[in-house]
């Protein structure tokens, strides 16, 4: 890139600029297309009618905006090339102060454009934020905690964490709130985001169209572990969902060995019970997740780690190392950890 004052030099950067704009645009379109394959949690790869509507509207807006972008940048690029001052030219150009007709036109056209966009907005918003369906098939109370998501299936009598199960094709109603600060619940492929606000219940409805596992995250900054407050949403067949529910409704596993008994005793009588509930949860709101069917979940620690024995043991040894700043501040002896592991791994 030459930076001297030679007359021809300034043409090169301009063409480069135009090329760059073009590359960026096509690159983006390609990336957006690729995203569906990459497993990204994107509404452009929707798994529900809501996200589908939103994606469809997005594409319309995107192409309209692309059109405006091309027109404006092309006019700019053209002006920069066509009206460059030649070095030997000392005459001042014609002094033009304005043109009322032109100014009216370039005000009126954007007004028409935004009216169109607003009409599209209203119609899609109504389609997406529809009033409560006459019957919700499944109702889930989603509660934001610092820094994990609780999924309370009130009608079914249990509560779980981090991993959300819904049946495909069913109308799911989510009652959303928080026990502490403002969080925001978002599984892009299933629906737009809605804030979880303490003292205030928000509602969202969604219907998953395709079975699958969908990634979500808390999307309102909520403190030191905001990044580690994730969601694994599982949309499954009616049969699989029923089976899962039944599993969650099973009574608490009772210890069958002394070591398991020691583990359960520890949880119920020692420091664990300050934050965790075990067994009948009776609508208790706890600082940490309910552990009754811990091993039925595939993720833990705000869905940031796979739930397997190695990770669980590491967590008991040093939860702060795995998720710094989280509320689990304990100092367990290796004997306690062995006992706990013996019991916890049975809680399927």
């Amino acid at each position: 890139m030459s930076m001297g004052n030679r007359p021809t030099a300034s043409r090169v950067p301009l063409i480069m600029r135009i090329r760059k704009a073009w590359l960026l645009t096509t690159g983006f379109v390609v990336a957006a297309g690729l995203s569906g394959c990459a497993g990204s949690p994107t509404f452009l790869n929707p798994a529900s009618s809501i996200s589908d509507h939103e994606a469809g509207l997005y594409m319309v807006i995107f192409y309209l905006a692309l059109g405006v972008f091309i027109i404006v940048e092309a006019l700019l690029a053209y002006a920069l090339i066509r009206f460059r001052k030649r070095d030997d030219d000392t005459e001042e150009p014609r002094q033009v102060y304005g043109n009322m007709r032109l100014e009216v036109i370039w005000t009126a056209i954007p007004v028409l454009l935004v009216l169109t966009l607003f009409a599209l907005t209203v119609s899609t918003a109504n389609a997406v934020a529809a009033p409560k369906p006459a019957d919700s098939d499944v109702r889930i109370h989603v509660i934001g905690h610092q820094w994990w998501w609780e999924f309370e299936y009130t009608d079914y009598g249990f509560t779980t964490a981090n991993e959300l199960h819904i049946p495909v094709g069913a109308n799911v109603q989510i009652d959303l709130d928080s026990v502490d600060v403002i969080h925001s619940f978002w599984v892009p492929q299933l629906a737009g985001k809605t804030d979880a606000i303490p003292g205030h219940t928000n509602y969202l409805w969604l219907t998953a169209g395709t079975a699958g596992t969908y990634h979500g995250q808390c999307v309102e900054f909520c403190g030191v572990n905001h990044a580690n407050m994730r969601i694994k949403a599982v949309a499954e067949s009616e049969a699989d969902f029923k089976a899962w529910v039944q599993g969650q409704q099973q009574p608490l596993y009772q210890p069958q060995t002394p070591q398991e008994q020691a583990g359960q005793d520890y949880i119920v009588n020692q420091i664990c019970s300050n934050c965790h509930t075990l067994g009948e949860y009776e609508g208790k709101r706890s600082i940490g997740p309910n552990l009754t069917h811990l091993m039925s979940r595939s993720v833990f620690a705000g869905a940031t780690y796979d739930l397997n024995e190695a990770n669980l043991r590491s967590w008991l040894q040093d939860a702060q190392a795995m998720k710094p700043g989280n509320d689990m501040i304990v100092n367990l002896s290796s004997e306690d950890i062995d006992n706990l592991m013996a019991y916890l791994t049975q809680l399927k």
Partner: peptide, 13 residues
């Protein structure tokens, strides 16, 4: 302009 579109904003905000 994208973000003024309410349903799209619910995804991108």
């Amino acid at each position: 302009v994208h973000m003024a579109v309410l349903p799209v904003d619910w995804q991108i905000t």
